[in-house]
Design a protein around this nucleic acid. Structure first.
Lengths: 89, 89, 89, 89
DNA sequence: CTGCCATTTTACCGGC
DNA sequence: GCCGGTAAAATGGCAG
């Protein structure tokens, strides 16, 4: 690899390298937080289990609620589309 | 289902119902945050892409770094296992 | 369901039915073989245990070796990606 | 680690080391075959999909058939138990 | 819209 | 025999 002679070691790879490093760090930081939240959720499921709830059922309940929420959002979206189509904005 | 006559509608299902509701809400709250983080990550990938980086490569790099970190953790763990197995606790 | 009058019982459901049956049988056959292999593996772990090896450690070792192999494969893959990204195909 | 002075490097770890190596290799070999079968199965699902079958439904069908087979096996087992209990072996 | 990858759910296995 | 944790299957989401 041919480096520009004015380049120091720290700059090897150039600006793009720094940019890349920054992007990677930001992503890794967020993924860490995400994993942390996933662990928190796991803990709550464990808590639920030790409180006598059936975890599998609990998961299903939450999944259903999520689906319903999504359906509602989609219906809102369609409604909005209709209203726009009818000039009712 | 026979409800205790002193029970109001809000209490239907009893204490367990309240506990369940609380668990569900906590989980849903955390999942929302998790999803939000996922979106943030997606945004960074988009940013990377528009800065000219190859997203596929970027993902691989991050995946590889994650694997390496995990492998290091596993090696620590197996070392501990060895020591226990050898009575070196 | 209205069957074509020239259809025999064996053909009920039509060509697609036969195709489906064939697919299912092939899958089930392979899954049987797979399960058989899983049993063989289990037997070896049992053998290892009765030979005095710590099964947990053994599993970790194998898991670690698998990870290492995979990481090597990934590094090859990312190298290919780099070369493509740099137009060095 | 103190090695017996008559031990060469190749023998370090002793007989147990050889035994361990053999066990690991046998397991890894079988796991490779297992993975290969898993890939074959995946291929069939892909084939099914491109033939217009709904893969998700297909999986359910196979899963149900597996459950039924298992149930039948369990019933046979119970029947055998009864027969033994009644001296009808 | 299809294939691929991450996440999630399910099933298994050893330990208590 | 359950439970906790680990590996496999399956589902869902995303980029191309």
């Amino acid at each position: 690899m041919a480096l520009d002679s004015t380049e120091t070691k720290a700059e090897a790879g150039g600006i793009a390298g720094e940019r890349l490093r920054s992007l990677i760090e930001r992503i890794e930081r967020l993924e860490e937080e995400k994993k942390s939240l996933a662990n928190d959720i796991k803990d709550i499921y464990a808590e639920a289990k030790s409180a006598g709830f059936d975890v599998k059922v609990l998961r299903k309940v939450i999944s259903l609620r999520r689906m319903e929420a999504q359906e509602r959002a989609e219906m809102d979206e369609i409604l909005t589309l209709y209203m726009h189509a009818l000039g009712m904005t």
